[in-house]
Design a binder for these strands. Sequence first.
DNA 1: CTGGTTGCAAAATTTTTGCACTGGT
DNA 2: ACCAGTGCAAAAATTTTGCAACCAG
Lengths: 137, 137
Amino acid sequence: MTDYSLLLRENDLKATFQRMQILETISKFGHLTIDSIYTEISKVHSSISLATIYKNILMMVDRGVLTEVPIIGKKSKYEIKKDEHIHLICISCGDVHDKSFKDRTIEYIDSISDDFLLSTTHREINLYGVCNRCNNI
Amino acid sequence: MTDYSLLLRENDLKATFQRMQILETISKFGHLTIDSIYTEISKVHSSISLATIYKNILMMVDRGVLTEVPIIGKKSKYEIKKDEHIHLICISCGDVHDKSFKDRTIEYIDSISDDFLLSTTHREINLYGVCNRCNNI
DNA sequence: CTGGTTGCAAAATTTTTGCACTGGT
DNA sequence: ACCAGTGCAAAAATTTTGCAACCAG
């Protein structure tokens, strides 16, 4: 169990109950949409406001605590920021799995860029397919 | 100038004026959001309805004529479906450039997947940074 | 204490839907 | 001529905003 109050304060955000809930909920599921975060937290703290979730997700993305994971044909999910990795995404249920880069993947990918971009600040590598669970349903 | 009426009919879509306009507008700019498509087409055909754009974008994505390009922190853009490629995306202006894969990139990327996915149907590789133009403003 | 944060309610924005009319094939 | 496709207007869904009360530091 990570110390999210520290993570928040390191990023100049007060460690409120709501923010702790958001981080713990995302951590529990890995990747969640805004409305799923709201639904989950509502189960244990029914008075939480959706507006608070919105404000905080935006702010935490801005401060680099969270990362947005946009998904083709679905709503963006959010994850706790971590080392760069690949996403395996099920086109049926939308479930997302993280997968580490192999050594040298970043260098390999960055070498494909050209002079349109000054430098690469962030990479997104997503592989889409049907996951095992959906295939068996 | 590609024959979009053929492309549409191959995908069981009638070649209406509105669809032709959508495809030609996207083709002209490369990558556009739904509201930009609407704004552009309105300039030459002021009575076009935004609902028509929405219905058609969804349908053309579904039929594989268009591809959605989700972008972190911005609205999705749409491009005409083409061979797999990388996107270079400016985090400031949102401009998108296409870049061909190097040989063997697909094999390399797919080899990172694991048994969560049965097989990979689509790959997304996006590199984010500040583009030259934004850097000079 | 006090400035940032919350919850609520209202506003703004985005997307979807229903339906009579139109136009491609 | 038929039926998919269009435009409009209304509805639904999503996101943002303003503000009084609240609470973490």
